[in-house]
Design a protein around this nucleic acid. Sequence first.
RNA 1: CGGGGUGUGGCUCAGGUGGCAGAGCGUCGGCUUCGGGAGCCGAAGGUCAGGGGUUCAAGUCCCCUCACCCCGACCA
Length: 570
Amino acid sequence: MRWSRYFWYTSKEEPAEAQSPSHRLLLKGGFIKQVSAGIYEFTPPGLRVLRKIENIVRKEMDRSGAQEVLLSVLNPAELWKETGRWELYGRELFTLKDRNGRDYCLGPTHEEEITDLVRSYVNSYRQLPLILYQIQVKFRDEKRPRFGLIRAREFIMKDAYSFDTDEFSAMLSYETVKFAYERIFKKLRLKTLMAQASVGAIGGISSHEFVVLTDYGEARVAYCEGCGYCANAEIVSLKKPQEEQEEEKLLQEVHTPGTDTIEKLASYLGVPARKIIKAVLHIVNESKPVMFLIRGDRAVDENKVEAVLGTENFRLAEDKEVYELLKTTKGFIGPFNLPPSVEVYWDNSTYGIKNAVIAFNKPDYHYINANPGRDFKQEKFVDVCQVEEKDPCPQCGAPLKVSRGLEVGHIFLLGTRYSEPMKAFYKDAQGQEKPIIMGCYGIGISRCVSAVVEQYHDEKGIKWPTTVAPFELDIICVNPSDQEQKEVSEKLYMLAQEHGIETIYDDRDESPGFKFADADLCGFPYRLVVGKKVKEGKVELQNRHTGERIDLDIDRAVEEAKKLIEEDKK
RNA sequence: CGGGGUGUGGCUCAGGUGGCAGAGCGUCGGCUUCGGGAGCCGAAGGUCAGGGGUUCAAGUCCCCUCACCCCGACCA
């Protein structure tokens, strides 16, 4: 491709709206263009990257025995009503009506459609197992799209679905896709962790996430370098700690004016936050008050709260509600003299604490030296504590590491969540009708574009791995008005194409610095610089990843580049 | 959905106390230059997000709406 004729425009200015490196560099490098919040267009080079990722995914899925289909984007409401998700999916579903007033949605995921497709053809155990997949656009009306392609409202996803006769067979399908995913991310050069995950809104039995460690992910992953345990932080269980060994001191009521936060209270009393018991009041289903008590230095994990309460319909109590129920204000809530409507849970972190600071619903006062058993009762213990670095690994007890991560893949063993309500049944060898056991498996293709940039960039720009680079080789003619340089560049460009190297030839009439800067920004793994050294019969081959530069004889240059590129792609 | 912020040329931004709409980059024409986003000369380019209000006069002050970005809770 000759850059002078190519639809590719980079920017010298930093895009004002972008924060994360991938968002910033993809915009600045002219790979994507924003249309609206969470909606992006791909330019020719951006699309080249996307297609390469798609093709890697496609190849590995095919290799695992999955078969590609293409489902509809515009989905009639009827199917979604069969599974109840027309209502359950909520406001994240983009919905619309046709001219006759019939309801549709733009598919955010395709369990309903694929189940409908399969049930219309499959009715015997002889037709199973089966894995189908597609690579297609998805729509989700996200509450907060952000970081460019990382969380978009319109995005490209590879979604696969498995259909089996029984759980054992389903588990095999699950493992098959899991292995395919490992190969895919390896080929994309993405360093991922595979984390145990909660099944969430899609529903199901078992689930793993493939997570890229970056600062701009929204998942928190806890992992253990000792035993290899790795899980989404929201499902890591924290047990009761050892009982503290301390002599119980005399309970005292202390005046603590204005200490409405743990920080203020800790510094006012001169005690560490871990010696404070904090109380958090939630309102469940807009009616029931529930109090959680947790150690002062720890945070409540709302996902765990959801698991304890069995509903996502809860929120923190407002000041007014706190006053009506407990006649106190935030910061002075405690588990004493409560109205019977208030349910109390103690987080495991509060177990065995000695001489603690705790509030008792009297504004501006706390108890000090409060001790469980003697001064208050702890009945129901639960685990609602947000996992943090150095917490013990639930498997081996070694200190955990915690990182922000970006979820690029997710696999679920669904069971009969969709086949049962949609009556996707098969007949077994005995003629018995049974629901198909399903699994579903996603990879965020467009998100992977960002994930790669997050892992491969420096202050100058992107450093594409050769397997996904828009072009493998950039030929720069330093001075196109120099006849000799021009001729050599043209010759090398032709030769590179003959060798099957994906080449962009920067023949633009721009200054050398301009072209070098673009090459760094756009991240081609290899760069052939045709400059004044042609007089000595040499050109320079540069490696974007290592920064290495070597002078090569003109006739050897392309072969040499080819060798390195092939090596990278292995 | 809660909290914070920003909307001025294609892009990045400046425009105290109301008084002729600006710069740099980019674009177009010309000259010069060529190993790290070159230099000089000239030109085009604006519904100041939209609507309403105050005023002799609004980019600037007030009200409403919209869009986008950031922080939190949720998805690949």
